[in-house]
């Protein structure tokens, strides 16, 4: 993981994400997407960042007690850190498998919770790292390179 190695001071964005807020979920990702567009990032990087942050936002809203999205924007890359407090993930390897989900029925009725979120985040990122502790929370760090 290459977060913080660049000597250039990044542009930083920070968003608090509330548990169960299905109305505002996605607003942080929308703002991140617009910021990247204004800073001259290309279509595929912006789209991947938007999908990755949106999936992260939804995971925080659905599964945690609340959390945050922190974004560091460098000229050549974007570092996204989604951190939450909550039950954590007992088996990360299992959670990374497509189709595995612990989402409640209400979320499935909305069309989410098919066990695609974490794998999709990994697919969107050039670098992906997940750390989770039971009854503490989960942190996902993703790096996307410009034009990557």
């Amino acid at each position: 993981m290459t977060e913080g190695k660049s000597e250039i001071t990044p542009i930083e964005l920070f968003f608090e994400i509330e548990r169960g807020d299905f109305v505002r979920a996605g607003e942080a990702s929308s703002k991140i997407k617009k910021k990247l567009l204004r800073l001259g990032f290309t279509g595929s990087t912006i789209r991947c960042a938007a999908i990755a942050t949106y999936e992260a936002e939804m995971n925080i809203v659905i599964h945690s007690l609340g959390g945050s999205l922190k974004v560091k924007i460098y000229p050549e890359k974007v570092v996204l850190v989604a951190k939450d407090e909550g039950p954590g993930i007992p088996d990360v390897a299992l959670a990374m498998k497509e189709g595995f989900s612990t989402a409640p029925e209400q979320v499935r009725e909305m069309g989410f919770g098919a066990g695609m979120g974490l794998p999709n985040m990994r697919n969107c990122a050039d670098e992906f790292e997940i750390e989770s502790r039971e009854d503490v929370g989960t942190t996902v760090t993703m790096v996307l390179y410009k034009g990557g």
Binding site: G111, F112, G115
Partner: peptide
């Protein structure tokens, strides 16, 4: 299933759905 849409759909595609909520 929005999870599938997010995972597999490219840009400029038209989405037809029976889901009706802000997400």
């Amino acid at each position: 299933l929005l999870s599938d849409v997010l995972a597999f759909t490219k840009e400029q595609v038209l989405l037809l759905t029976g889901l009706v909520h802000p997400q």
